[in-house]
Design a protein around this nucleic acid. Structure first.
Lengths: 171, 171
DNA sequence: CATGGCATGTAATTTGTTACATGATTTC
DNA sequence: GAAATCATGTAACAAATTACATGCCATG
């Protein structure tokens, strides 16, 4: 369902092919969702069948023909309605589940888990910062900024967890 | 797949019925995942068939019989292996997608979207704080603390977005 | 006597992932 | 000549949601 609105939302800006959509998603929303062709194309077909988008085949010289999809009025209405509904998303962090279940591990093992996570986040933070600088639109900037803020908040939280573990466990 | 380890991980603490698992998940991990019976029971059956858990039917007076599942050595090994692998989770926030796609909305509409989100989070924050106080184990406390930290970080980010919008749009 | 908690499950559907399959062109 | 980019898709599978279906017991 998410991909439906993702596609529709991007088509609201300008008509695009499935390939183009994939590129845009990867560039701007890679951290939010990762739409692959296996999802994109079938979803486009469905949207077409439902009249939310139209299509026009464009022949090109020197490269494969492409199908450019435009959003219809119906599709546009659908996105607009969706946009106005509040989003209810959960945290849904696999790591959080791991940490919760890690009570059966030794303090050292838990610490290793947490440290590894922090190292990973601190590494990813660099890429995020680069994304932020290279953001084209304000919206893309916000997304990057959000990711960065979440990353920082998690790192701080991890630090708290780390000190808690070291202080609690026998030295 | 997540539910598989969720179940296995909880069974590592003590043998439980599907019903018990559900209760525990709802209480301690409600913000991470929301396992329903439709997932829980089939997963338990699969785990049983694969020898990751064993089962014992317990008759009770005054209430329905229950099936208490215990984790096997094989299942325990599986969780332990999984725990040690790094988790790679994406942000996957529906709201983030909405905000990104909201460039076709008027500044006022975007502002409404953002404000509503902030109000929602600030409301949910109260429940989270209560969860934190009532956390039984350190692990449950960490989860609550994580949720709280993420909530606060998002609220701050929303504030930044709000000021950005008000300053940029024509007054 | 109705509501809610205890307790089990199935079936249909939706959603998404991964891998497979094809083929031309451009750049290194 | 190999690899990357452009461009389309299908099929098999995995995962999860929702709704349905049942039934007893305790409390108000």
């Amino acid at each position: 369902m998410l991909h439906r609105y993702l596609i529709l939302g991007l088509l609201m800006d300008s008509p695009m092919s499935g390939y183009d959509i994939r590129k845009q998603v990867n560039a701007a929303l890679g951290m939010v969702t990762n739409a692959s062709y296996g999802t994109l194309y079938p979803t486009l077909h469905k949207l077409l069948a439902q009249g939310a988008v139209g299509v026009q085949e464009i022949s090109q010289i020197g490269r494969p023909a492409k199908k450019v999809y435009q959003i219809t009025e119906r599709g546009r209405q659908e996105v607009l309605d969706w946009l106005k509904q509040p989003a209810d998303d959960q945290l849904q962090r696999e790591f959080l589940l791991k940490l919760y279940l890690a009570r059966n591990l030794s303090a050292n093992d838990v610490l290793a888990l947490v440290s590894a996570r922090r190292a990973k986040l601190e590494f990813e933070r660099q890429a995020l910062q680069a994304d932020k600088s290279g953001a084209g639109s304000p919206q893309a900037g916000w997304v990057a900024d959000y990711a960065l803020a979440m990353c920082d908040a998690e790192v701080e939280w991890l630090r708290r967890v780390e000190t808690h573990i070291t202080q609690t466990s026998v030295v």
